[in-house]
């Protein structure tokens, strides 16, 4: 730029700062939340209309209000559903907690120690690839149709997703951060606690999230296959007696459980692990 231009630029009086244009808030009904809510309401309305107008036989699809009626009866009048919910929750809870504990611990160890990984990896990969519910007949042979065969199935259904993700998280820990800690005289235990575990945290949470779906599938299939209690059993029984509304209510309980677990995990993640997300 030559001198003349510079001068010309300097000579131009600065334009007064323009007032910011009024920021218009978009109307509330265009927000994502509102649209999602509307979408659900319209879906339910169409469902109700299709079923109550007689386009679909009630045996094939119960209306939302019929499902609500059944739910009201089950929860507040006959109160028959509670023992089943308790059984299903126990199976899911015990199996899931065991899966988290074992999956995280084994994943941490296998991720850090190559030789241990070599020992266990063939079995982990084989079992991860096997649909765990296929092992149910075997487990019923071993443990009967009570709680523990279901716990085992739930455990196997969830543990490998957690284990494999944890292992990936450990192995993905930035070697430069490990070296940095070592340069500040960190011991192997300190490297593990301060670098590897926090680095693996997002992967562990992702593994647990993946396991939620598998755990619910395992509970359901196990109860469907052989049991005399549980929400899965209720669904099977209802289907066998063409009680479609009750069957759908049972399925919705699984849906609610899945959504609730997933939301709880998101909450825990936000509260405690937000910082450990990938940056």
């Amino acid at each position: 730029m030559n001198g003349q231009n510079t001068q010309a630029l300097q000579a131009t009086p600065a334009a007064p700062a323009a007032a910011p244009p009024a920021v218009v808030r978009p109307p509330w009904w265009t927000s994502g939340r509102a649209i999602s809510a509307a979408s659900v309401v319209i879906f339910l309305a169409v469902w109700q209309w299709v079923t109550s107008a007689g386009y679909v036989e009630p045996i094939f699809l119960a209306s939302p209000t019929a499902i609500l009626d059944v739910a009201y009866d089950q929860f507040f009048v006959s109160r028959e559903i509670y023992p089943h919910i308790l059984v299903s929750l126990t199976e899911a809870f015990v199996g899931f907690v065991l899966a988290i504990v074992a999956g995280v611990l084994l994943g941490l160890v296998m991720g850090r120690f190559d030789r241990l990984r070599a020992v266990f990896e063939p079995f982990v990969m084989a079992l991860y690839a096997t649909p765990s519910v296929a092992l149910l007949p075997l487990f019923i042979l071993w443990l009967g149709i009570g709680l523990w065969s279901k716990v085992l199935i739930v455990f196997l259904g969830g543990v490998f997703a957690i284990l494999v993700n944890t292992m990936a998280g450990v192995r993905g820990a930035n070697p430069k951060l490990i070296e940095t800690a070592q340069a500040f005289t960190a011991s192997e235990a300190e490297v593990f606690a301060y670098i590897i575990l926090p680095s693996a945290m997002p992967f562990i949470v992702a593994g647990i999230r993946l396991a939620i779906g598998r755990v619910l599938i395992s509970v359901f299939v196990a109860e469907l296959y052989a049991s005399n209690q549980g929400v899965g059993f209720v669904v099977t029984q209802a289907a066998a007696s063409y009680a479609t509304a009750l069957m759908l209510m049972g399925i919705l309980l699984f849906t609610l459980a899945g959504v609730a677990l997933s939301q709880a995990l998101t909450l825990i993640e936000d509260l405690f692990f937000g910082r450990f997300r990938e940056h």
């Binding site: 430069k176 951060l177 070296e179 940095t180 800690a181 340069a183 500040f184 005289t185 960190a186 300190e190 301060y194 670098i195 926090p198 910082r275 450990f276 990938e278 940056h279």
Partner: peptide
């Protein structure tokens, strides 16, 4: 004490916590 080319700060710790991390170790 080492200073690294790519700073090598722990992404989940604040500036102050990163500085104190070295001291702690």
């Amino acid at each position: 004490a080492m200073v690294f080319q790519e700073h090598n700060l722990l992404p989940w710790k604040t500036a102050q916590e990163n500085i104190r991390f070295g001291c702690k170790l």
